[in-house]
Design a binder for these strands. Structure first.
Lengths: 141, 141
DNA sequence: AGATACTTGACTATTTTAGTCGGGTTTATA
DNA sequence: TATAAACCCGACTAAAATAGTCAAGTATCT
């Protein structure tokens, strides 16, 4: 089990964005340079973040992205959801499987994965961008 | 983030094994049939479980595997460790990265992934095979 | 002897991931 | 109004991980 780069990048980029969000839009080029993430890849990620209304875009020169909500309103859950990073521990839910459909027939470990999913999701539900920004408040860069 | 089949299979197989463990060794063939897991794949998995002394093998006819410890002594952590299913959320720890080595220089989200890792590991540390067997104690098959 | 079952290592198809690439469109500003 | 900065979008691709398969053993019971 591991978190993929897409999710990690999304969070890193948003923390970066949140920290420089004060006055002007922040360009992906800047985030790319500061965080060492490929610009092309960032564009894919921000396209999804925009569709889920986590950020707003400002086109043209001096353009970039701004947060669309307050930092305490953006939970990690929202971010992961936006970039399709799903916490799916249970594959046994698939319709086709006769040994486990989650309802009438459950595999030996079905409840376990359900519990785990909840456990992780609780963590993500509680953590907001604000928390992460505060964690880094004493930093220069 | 998702749990891979190897880890899920390992847990399923061990729950199955624990339930039929009473008298005789349980053959992988039986587990394969009951749980719908490829026999060849199970062999790989049990080879690792044996090396970590979670199970013992009994060769020859009527052979199979038996648990090497009490069910309450086998934590999910042990199982995942054995089959190389690591909860690694943080790739930024890699030595080569200048932006984050975990010590002198930390990336913006380093603490977050550390926390998450602990959160998940706590869950796995507490859950034992015994708990899972009890969950299924009312089942026939 | 033969069948059952573990043991081991190498091989492979599929899927996922982490990008890249090439072409746009929009807008500030010189 | 030309230009450059920046967003926008879809298709493509190399590399890695995953989930197996396969072949050739060895041990042990009956």
């Amino acid at each position: 089990m591991k978190l993929t780069s897409k999710g990690r990048y999304a969070v890193m980029a948003l923390v970066d964005l949140a920290r420089f969000n004060n006055i002007n839009p922040v360009s992906l080029r800047d985030i790319s340079l500061r965080q060492g993430i490929s610009l092309d890849y960032l564009e894919q990620i921000f396209s999804k973040l925009r569709k889920k209304e986590i950020v707003q875009s400002v086109r043209g020169t001096q353009g970039g992205y701004i947060l669309n909500k307050k930092t305490n309103e953006i939970k990690l859950t929202n971010i992961f959801e936006a970039v399709d990073e799903k916490v799916k521990t249970v594959q046994c839910k698939k319709e086709s499987k006769k040994s486990c459909n989650g309802k009438t027939v459950k595999c030996l470990t079905h409840n376990l994965w359900d519990e785990l999913e909840n456990h992780i999701n609780n963590f993500f539900d509680e953590k907001s961008l604000e928390d992460l920004v505060k964690d880094n408040s004493e930093r220069r860069i």
